[in-house]
């Protein structure tokens, strides 16, 4: 079964509908073997739809995709590089557990002032000692996690802000997991579980800062 499976993601991508965009290198390296059945049909559909959309928009950055900018705040993607962002998932103000009112899209503090001043040497874990704050988003609001690294180890990864419609006590069982593994156990969770995903994302974004500091 595993052996018979075609490795190419877009096996039918060489047809007349191929968009004039550069082919990604990972596609070039795969076998161009044609595949029948649903795998081939789905691949062909995607390549064709993308080609039509690309042809409609290649001369402009607006065109087909103007709707994104024109849409209301809920539909607008927010892009913030460097792993620190808060998106306006829910426009309603949320009370964080420390009692402060936070109204999206006000940015959440991403690092405590003390963190940058830390001069502790970096440990084998790759994390520099300090306190780091990360935010994870979900459809129903954000979760803020504060990660404390001491002696190169994660000693705390508590939920310090909860803007979600559900109680954040749901994720407390995940904290001990992070402490045991010294990282979030996964990058993503399949089978929507908003709260776990948001918490892992919050911890991961805090740890990115801990690693960047260490580097």
């Amino acid at each position: 079964m595993a052996q018979s499976r075609p490795p190419a993601r877009r096996p039918n991508s060489g047809g007349p509908g191929t968009p004039p965009a550069a082919r990604p290198s990972w596609r070039k390296s795969r076998s161009p073997r044609l595949t029948a059945g649903l795998v081939g049909l789905s691949s062909a559909a995607i390549v064709s739809v993308y080609a039509v959309g690309y042809a409609n928009t290649r001369n402009t950055d607006n065109g087909l995709f103007q709707a994104v900018q024109a849409a209301g705040p809920e539909a607008s993607p927010t892009t913030v590089p460097q792993a620190r962002q808060q998106i306006p998932v829910d426009p309603a103000p949320r009370t964080f557990s420390n009692g402060t009112q936070q109204s999206a899209p006000t940015p959440t503090p991403t690092r405590t002032p003390g963190a940058q001043a830390q001069t502790q040497p970096q440990a084998a874990s790759g994390y520099r000692d300090g306190t780091y704050v990360g935010v994870g988003n979900s459809r129903h609001g954000g979760i803020q996690a504060t990660v404390v690294v001491s002696g190169g180890k994660i000693t705390s990864a508590a939920v310090t802000g909860c803007g979600t419609r559900y109680p954040c006590s749901k994720v407390t069982s995940l904290v001990s997991q992070v402490l045991t593994i010294q990282a979030p156990p996964v990058n993503y969770v399949s089978g929507a579980t908003d709260s776990s995903q948001a918490y892992y994302q919050a911890v991961a974004s805090a740890l990115v800062q801990a690693r960047a500091q260490a580097g």
Partner: peptide, 23 residues
């Protein structure tokens, strides 16, 4: 550890929005 400083880890680029009633 200092040798790691030659190649500091690059932070990922993240973007998100709500579409199709989902994040």
């Amino acid at each position: 550890n200092t040798s790691r400083r030659i190649r500091p880890p690059r932070e990922p680029y993240l973007a998100s929005g709500v579409f199709m009633d989902t994040l």
